[in-house]
Every structure is written in structure tokens, then in C-alpha cells.
């Protein structure tokens, strides 16, 4: 058994909030660079160039890449042999978000009640997904999620008969209908299977995979590539101004499902794809 004071968790979350919002991942930068060479639209190339310049400025000046510094979504994998001391586990995470958003000059974008819509003032609460895993380590992944791309996401309870063709048309159509709203180029997280909520959750997890990586199952790896190609034929292009580069990648996660069900979800992610992790 390992004892861990929750203040360690608070400090880790605080640092991750800032790093995730200032530093664009190398995988995204690499992909944007490659696309800058390939993009057919001159305006599209110019947009990609500005996005890369933006990443350089944000990283250097330690300012957020995007003004929408997101909802703090935290995935925590807790080793079952860890014993937390010194306070409430969840509150320690919220406190990390509170400190990170305050000290990091990040925008506070959370309202406490969806109808009343009063800002909580410190970007809390976080959305926390906790998994208990073997071992005595704690893995914390922080993925701030902007509203523009989140709003273009969807879960659809399809009929099993819709099959693979149903998945393809739903995903591609979701991207087409989103147009410029999610700030393309986007990364498309797709969940297939599970229950209603599981399906949405695996689509979000799919966004944590590095751009350019493929599903371990060759069938889904091929489907990812096919969907990416279909999406990049839509013509939406960078910022919707027209062009080839609409999506940097498509990531699929699958889960067993009920004999009567066939849930499919799309979680849209803008090019400001933020996720940072640490192992404690």
C-alpha cells in the first residue's frame, strides 16, 4: 500500500491546466506542418501557417492557445493499492483546476446552473472520470475542452441494421453539418458500441490518442483511414474557408454492446487539441 497526500494531486492538476493550455502537442504541430505543404487552397495554407505561428507565440509567452480554455476534463487512473490522505480526492482535483485557471490567466467558462447560467468564477467544477486499475501509481490526464467543438458533438442510437455504412454516413455528415463552427482542422473522436453514456465517453477517450496513430485492430484502423479520406473530400478546409484539410485525424474506440443496440457517437475536437498527463 502506498500513501499519497491529495495535495500532490492538486499540484499536478494545477500544472497540467497551464501546460495543456499553453503548449500544443508535437503530434498536432507535425500534422499541421505536413498539411501546410499539402493544402491546395492558398487561404487554407495561410490559415495553417497562422495556427502554427499561434502555437509558437502561446508556447513562448506562456499564454493560452485559445481564449476558450475549456471545461477541465480529468481522467484519473488510480492504482488500487494507493491510499489518499490529507483531504477529499475530488475536491483536491477541483482545487488544482481553481489554482491553475487563476494563476495561469485562463478564462473561467463554467456556469453553475445550466438554466440560471451564473459563472462559478474559478472554472470549477471539473468533470472527473475515475478508473481503478491494478498497481500503486496514479495517472492523471487533463483535457480542457472548448465549447465550440463540443457543441458539434452527437450520440446517435442507431439500429443494428444500419451497419458500417450507417456509421460512415453519420460521422461524415456530422462533420459536414459542423462546417466552420468547431474551428477546423478538427480531430474526430468516434465511439461505436457500449451504452448511451459509454459510447460518448469512448469517443472522448479516442481524442486522447496521438494524431497519426491507428487503432490496434486492422479493421478499425482501415475504417479510420477511410473516414479521414471521406471527411477530407468534403472541401470544408481550414476554418471552413474551403480546402482539403478539414480533419487531421479520425480516432475510433469500440465497446461491446447490447443485442438490440448500436450506439455511435462523434466527439469533435478542434485543432487546439489539449491533453497533458502525468504519472504520480
Amino acid at each position: 500500500m502506498r500513501t499519497l497526500n491529495v495535495s500532490v494531486l492538486t499540484d499536478a492538476v494545477k500544472t497540467l491546466c497551464m501546460e495543456a493550455n499553453y503548449d500544443l502537442g508535437d503530434d498536432v504541430i507535425q500534422s499541421l506542418r505536413t498539411w501546410k505543404e499539402k493544402e491546395e487552397s492558398p487561404t487554407g495554407r495561410e490559415v495553417l501557417d497562422k495556427i502554427l505561428e499561434n502555437a509558437a507565440i502561446a508556447g513562448k509567452e506562456r499564454v493560452p492557445l485559445c481564449q476558450d480554455t475549456g471545461f477541465a476534463v480529468v481522467f484519473v487512473e488510480v492504482g488500487q493499492d494507493v491510499h489518499f490522505t490529507g483531504g477529499d480526492f475530488q475536491e483536491a482535483i477541483h482545487e488544482g483546476v481553481r489554482q491553475g485557471y487563476q494563476e495561469g490567466y485562463l478564462r473561467k467558462s463554467i456556469v453553475s446552473d445550466p438554466i440560471e447560467r451564473k459563472n462559478t468564477g474559478d472554472n470549477t467544477p471539473a468533470v472527473i472520470h475515475t478508473d481503478i486499475v491494478p498497481g500503486e501509481k496514479v495517472r492523471v490526464i487533463l483535457a480542457p475542452k472548448g465549447g465550440g467543438s463540443e457543441n458539434m458533438s452527437e450520440v446517435k442510437m442507431m439500429a443494428p441494421a444500419a451497419g458500417i455504412e450507417g456509421v460512415k454516413s453519420f460521422v461524415v455528415d456530422r462533420v459536414r453539418r459542423s462546417g466552420a463552427n468547431p474551428c477546423p482542422p478538427v480531430i474526430v473522436g468516434v465511439g461505436i458500441g457500449g451504452t448511451f453514456e459509454k459510447c460518448a465517453q469512448i469517443a472522448k477517450r479516442a481524442l486522447l490518442r496521438p494524431v497519426g496513430s491507428r487503432h490496434s485492430d486492422p479493421y478499425y484502423a482501415a475504417l479510420e483511414e477511410e473516414l479521414l479520406d471521406m471527411i477530407n473530400r468534403l472541401g470544408i478546409g481550414p476554418q471552413g474557408f474551403g480546402g482539403r484539410c478539414t480533419a487531421l485525424d479520425v480516432h475510433i474506440e469500440v465497446h461491446p454492446c447490447h443485442i438490440a443496440s448500436f450506439p455511435v457517437s462523434v466527439n469533435m475536437q478542434c485543432h487546439v487539441s489539449r491533453h497533458r498527463e502525468v504519472i504520480l
Partner: peptide
């Protein structure tokens, strides 16, 4: 006008 969504540090300049 469309501005570049996500290039917010650049636009602040």
C-alpha cells in the same frame, strides 16, 4: 468576417 478560431494568442498581438 471570419477570424481564425483557435489562433487567439496571435490575434491578441
Amino acid at each position: 468576417f471570419g477570424a481564425i478560431g483557435g489562433a487567439a494568442a496571435l490575434m491578441a498581438k
